[in-house]
Simulated scan of single mutants.
Amino acid sequence: MDRPDLPLNALRVFEVAMRQGSFTKAATELRVTQAAVSHQIARLEDLLGVTLFLRTSQGLVPTDEGRLLFPVLEHGFDAMARVLDRLGGRRDIEVLSVGVNTTFALGWLMPRLDAFREAHPEIDLRIATNNNRVEILREGLDMAIRFGTGGWTGHETIPLMATPFAPLCAPEMAARLRDPADLGQVTLLRSYRSAEWPGWFAAAGTPCPPITGAVFDSSVALAELAASGAGAALLPVAMFERFVAQGQLAQPYGITVSVGRYYLAWPSDRATTRAMTTFARWLSGAAPADAAARA
């Protein structure tokens, strides 16, 4: 296979601009001017014969070509960094890139990362959050923490935490809710998993009312809307304990329903590294213990 004769510096500038989402932020990371970043991107676009970014009034928007190129470059630069670190004397440091469902990241993982890093200084753990839709190889990741059934073709999985769902809403709204049927009088905020509310009402022994309105792909967004008084959201309670403890959300009913759990996943054909094994062992030990403590 012929290797393209492209300038490494321009490729690096593009990778940073994609990751930062801004020429200004890319210039700061690279310690160059914004004009220099723009020049390198324009040069790369000319050499490739494609447009990598659209400059809009809303900011920098990557094109399909840009999105296709980015994960390849990110993975390549990370691989080069690992080798250069070893050549430079950091033989004990291994980079581990993990994609994490945003709800799990905010509700459980992030407060515990310092403990993991203190226990495992030999691992440079890099977290990238997502809305549960993630392509591990395409996005240059080693592993991902996802919510669902765990039956993802071509992936190995380790079950982590079962997180029962229950309605959560603003405390003022919760004070008006006595019986599960009362939820029919408020707005039911819904996610893209359409079976969740019918499943909860079935567990409550109450007919599910018609559910209409916007569909959200983020439990964090649903929680913020519920806290603002916009309606009731069906959420994994364990991930929003902080909201409840701070009085932003309340749980009017003790009835819960299981719609899935969190899993650690990685491609079946990927060789397992020492860092992957260490991270998986740490998660398996920490997450179930916390889950059991809540039961």
Rank of each mutant, 00 (worst) to 15 (best):
residue 276 M to R: 10
residue 291 A to D: 06
residue 41 I to A: 03
residue 242 R to I: 04
residue 183 L to P: 12
residue 183 L to Q: 10
residue 57 S to N: 08
residue 18 M to K: 04
residue 87 L to E: 00
residue 15 E to R: 14
residue 203 A to S: 11
residue 56 T to G: 09
residue 168 L to Q: 12
residue 192 Y to V: 14
residue 15 E to K: 09
residue 101 N to E: 07
residue 28 T to N: 13
residue 57 S to K: 08
residue 287 A to Y: 01
residue 242 R to A: 14
residue 177 L to T: 10
residue 146 R to D: 05
residue 205 G to D: 13
residue 212 T to H: 11
residue 158 I to M: 15
residue 33 T to I: 10
residue 12 R to H: 12
residue 189 L to G: 03
residue 222 L to Q: 10
residue 175 A to H: 10
residue 177 L to W: 08
residue 216 F to N: 11
residue 45 E to N: 09
residue 85 D to E: 02
residue 99 G to K: 01
residue 264 L to D: 06
residue 24 T to K: 12
residue 41 I to P: 01
residue 54 L to W: 04
residue 109 L to R: 01
residue 162 A to W: 03
residue 54 L to I: 07
residue 141 L to W: 06
residue 92 D to G: 05
residue 267 P to L: 10
residue 31 R to W: 05
residue 99 G to F: 02
residue 140 G to W: 00
residue 226 A to Q: 05
residue 149 T to A: 14
residue 37 V to P: 03
residue 259 V to R: 14
residue 250 A to D: 05
residue 168 L to E: 10
residue 104 F to M: 13
residue 253 Y to T: 08
residue 79 A to C: 03
residue 119 A to Y: 08
residue 224 E to Y: 05
residue 252 P to F: 06
residue 99 G to L: 00
residue 42 A to F: 07
residue 192 Y to M: 15
residue 210 P to Q: 10
residue 192 Y to A: 15
residue 198 P to Q: 12
residue 156 E to T: 12
residue 120 H to Q: 08
residue 288 P to K: 07
residue 278 T to E: 11
residue 239 M to E: 14
residue 1 M to T: 05
residue 177 L to G: 09
residue 108 W to Q: 00
residue 6 L to D: 07
residue 166 A to M: 07
residue 292 A to Q: 15
residue 92 D to L: 05
residue 192 Y to D: 15
residue 109 L to F: 00
residue 60 L to E: 02
residue 272 T to R: 15
residue 58 Q to H: 14
residue 145 I to K: 08
residue 218 S to F: 13
residue 210 P to G: 08
residue 19 R to P: 01
residue 93 I to A: 00
residue 90 R to S: 01
residue 41 I to V: 15
residue 58 Q to F: 07
residue 52 L to K: 00
residue 163 T to G: 11
residue 88 G to T: 02
residue 59 G to L: 04
residue 59 G to D: 04
residue 238 A to S: 15
residue 76 G to M: 02
residue 122 E to Y: 01
